[in-house]
Design a protein around this nucleic acid. Structure first.
Lengths: 151, 151
DNA sequence: GATGAAAATCGCCATCG
DNA sequence: CGATGGCGATTTTCATC
């Protein structure tokens, strides 16, 4: 079902991206739409896959994983981790994997407790392809909400 | 205040990373700790900066921004966007900026509505440094919770 | 940190515009 | 398709142990 998102949908998405814990009543006040309508809209957005989940954002450093890195992968053909992400199911250090165009197969974002743990993960990743890693010094922009496409 | 996270803290972090909309009562049931204690713990985690926010995760493609890319930047000295992220305040396409060690200054994650919009953003970014971009074909691992560091 | 209760809030159903 | 009203259930918080 591909009915485009209207003004109310985007107001709800804005609010819930900013604070996922807002109640339907509170959303109703902010968006100036009745609470039952809010609940219906939000459930529709969830069912349509527009909203994929609600998550607390945890600071990896404060949580004991201060070693952040980006690992560029050039996988060996069929063992490409982008087609077998389940290979990394038991690697809690792996936060994100994106598959790319170009000579870099994928980029893996990693959050490890220690340099040593990062080293071990790189060894593991090197089974699947050539790795090239860079440490994350800081995150000037950590997170941004998805904004309505202005057309 | 740097008191390390205990078992209860991690149970709460796990639950709230998985579903940020759980009530304190529901958390109380899952973590087997009384509701007032849950509320107190969660507020402490928020105040300590361990929990940085609660966000709905929105699928950029479903929300009208299907053109995702990673842009590697080699900034021109002082104009480096990692030290002046406010230069990108009015670029809703920019989702994330990480500063890196190595010859790549930073990587910028972008979600644009169209190829044309991506092109325009690249023009803008090229004012600050050399850009090298790769399209995101897919995201085999989109998101992972921060897990307790096993030591 | 647990308990218990009180006040406020929330979510949902049926109904109506 | 959205708004209103009201009910019951849930939640949050306070004081106390």
């Amino acid at each position: 079902m591909n009915t485009p998102l209207d003004k109310v949908d985007w107001a709800l998405l804005d609010a819930l991206q900013e604070d996922a814990r807002l109640s339907y009543n509170e959303l109703s006040r902010r968006v100036h739409v009745s609470a039952p309508t809010v609940a219906q809209r939000v459930r529709r957005l969830e069912a349509a896959g527009v909203i994929q989940g609600y998550h607390a954002r945890v600071d990896p450093t404060a949580a004991g994983r201060p070693v952040i890195a980006l690992v560029r992968m050039k996988c060996y053909g069929a063992r490409c981790i982008t087609v077998h992400p389940e290979l990394l199911a038991d690697c809690p250090e792996v936060m994100e994997v994106v598959r790319l165009t170009g000579d870099i197969c994928s980029v893996v974002k990693v959050a490890a407790p220690t340099i040593r743990a990062l080293e071990q993960l790189l060894e593991r990743l090197s089974r699947y392809g050539e790795t090239s890693s860079a440490m994350v010094l800081s995150t000037p922009i950590d997170w941004r909400p998805v904004a309505p496409p202005t057309e």
